[in-house]
Structure formats: C-alpha cells, structure tokens
Amino acid sequence: MPVSGLIDIHCHMIPYVDDGAVDLKEAVKMLKMEYDQGVRTIIVTPHHRKRMFETPMAEIKKQFRILREAAWEYDQDLRLYLGCEFHAETDMVPLLRSGQVPTMAGSRYVLTEFSNRMDAFYIRERLYALLSSGYKPVIAHVERYDIMRENIGLVEELISMGAMTQINADSLIGKEGFGTKRFCRMLMKQGAVHFVGSDSHGSRERVSRLGEAYVYTEKKFGRTCAEEIFIKNPRRILADAKKRKHSSAAHRK
C-alpha cells in the first residue's frame, strides 16, 4: 500500500468484548492487516449496546492493555487508543459522564450508532442531547441507515446541528454493493463525510481496507480531501483528547 500514517477511528479488535476479534491471535492478525493498509494509529471502538454488548469497563480496559502491548511488540509506530461505538439510548450522557462508557480516546467525540427502527425525531433528540452536553457526536456508518439513504437532506440537517459523519471503507469502495457506493459518493461530493473507518471485525471477514479507500478517495476526490478525512480530522479527535486531559489535570490542581 503506497500510503502510510492513516488513522482508523472505528474498528472492533479488542478480543472477548463484542462481536469483533474472538481472541488475541485474531486481534494481532487484524493489527497486521491495518498496518499493511497504511494505518499507524487506531481508535478501537468496542460496541456498547443495552442487552447485547455490556462488557464491564474494567474488562474492556484489561483486554485493551493486552492488545496495546501486542501492537507495540509488532511495531512501535502503532498507536492504539480506547473508544466505543455507542448505540444510541436515552441515558447516553450520564453513562459518558460517569465513565461507564468511554468517548473516543478520551476526547469529546462520541461514535454514535443508530438502528433502522429509529426515526428522525429520535435521532435528532439523541444527537441534540449529546451536543447540548458538550459532546461531539460522530454518526457511525451513516450510509447504513435507510432513513438517511432515503433522505440525504436529513444527513445535511444533522451536520448543520453540529453532528459529524463516518462512512465505512468497504461501503466507499463498493464492497457493500453499487447502491451503497453511489450514496457514499453523493455524500462525498456534498462534503458530508468527515471520517472513513474500517469498521473491521476480523481477519477473514469484514477486514480493514482503509488504505484502499484512501487511494480511491485520492483518485476520485483529490489528495486534499483524502488527507482531511483519513488523517487531519482524526488528528483533531486526538488533539481534543490531549486538550481535555490537560484541562482536567489543571482543574485538579
């Protein structure tokens, strides 16, 4: 892959905590695949969803530390941060504030997942609750929701509220079908995409193709666009996390 230094903000490689990597061996294979795609920084985002994925934070952090050590052993250029793909619910803000669910790398950004049964009113309500509490919601794989695909104006409305969007690499390069690829291209042309993530879940299925998506974006939309979405915007998450950490430390003093 002729590109390096990409940042993946959405993947499921912490073993034993959700439907991603089944064990550490699988997680290391996923790390190597990310590396081969040109990824050097990863925000790992295990699912949190009521009655489906509710692994205690202590266990998630334990497995994350083991994975991070494995990444360092593979290549010291690899940097891993802990995040979460947070399925929208009414008590998101209290869970975030209490630390029961993590933000992205400790920043104000929250990777927020919806489901197709949720209507526009509920989506607006959940995003507004996050925004009004000082968080920066990033709508996970926005291209997967029927309500968004049927009404691109809704996506633009949510962005105007202050939300950001993420699409999956596979969707962008056509691995999820022509219709999904076409919708992603529409979003890209309208400047309605802020991040591309791998959303990888394994080393054989739902693998990371982030580097391929970068090359495609550079070819179709230009290098400036590709660098903004795959590198610069993700760096803003990490910069926000650093700023938030320093602010908390100063407040404790």
Rank of each mutant, 00 (worst) to 15 (best):
V3Y: 03
S4G: 01
H10L: 10
M13V: 03
I14F: 07
D18V: 10
D19A: 01
G20D: 09
G20W: 03
A21M: 08
D23K: 07
D23H: 09
L24F: 10
A27Q: 05
K29P: 01
K32L: 14
E34T: 03
Q37I: 03
G38L: 03
R40I: 04
T41W: 03
T45W: 05
H48I: 09
H48D: 05
M52W: 12
F53L: 09
T55H: 11
P56V: 15
M57G: 04
I60N: 06
I60S: 05
Q63D: 08
I66P: 02
R68P: 01
Y74W: 09
R79D: 12
L80Y: 07
Y81P: 11
Y81E: 05
F86G: 08
H87L: 14
H87M: 15
H87E: 14
P94I: 15
R97T: 05
R97M: 13
G99W: 12
G99K: 15
T103W: 11
T103F: 06
T103G: 05
M104I: 04
S107W: 06
E113R: 07
F114H: 11
F114P: 03
S115V: 09
S115L: 08
M118R: 11
D119N: 15
Y122C: 10
I123V: 15
E125V: 09
A129F: 06
L130C: 14
L130K: 09
S132C: 08
S133G: 04
S133A: 15
Y135A: 07
P137M: 14
I139L: 10
H141I: 08
Y145A: 04
Y145C: 03
M148D: 01
N151D: 15
I152T: 04
G153W: 14
G153C: 07
L158F: 09
I159W: 02
S160Q: 15
G162W: 09
A163F: 08
M164Q: 13
T165M: 06
D170L: 05
S171W: 00
E176H: 08
T180P: 01
R182V: 11
R185Y: 12
M186K: 14
G191M: 11
F195P: 02
D199K: 04
H201S: 03
H201L: 06
G202R: 07
R204I: 08
R206V: 03
R206C: 04
S208E: 05
R209M: 06
Y216I: 01
Y216K: 02
E218S: 11
G222V: 02
R223F: 04
R223M: 11
R223D: 02
T224H: 13
F230G: 01
F230M: 06
I231F: 00
P234E: 09
P234Q: 13
I237S: 03
A241E: 02
K243Y: 07
K243W: 08
K243S: 12
R244N: 14
S248H: 12
A249L: 13
A250F: 11
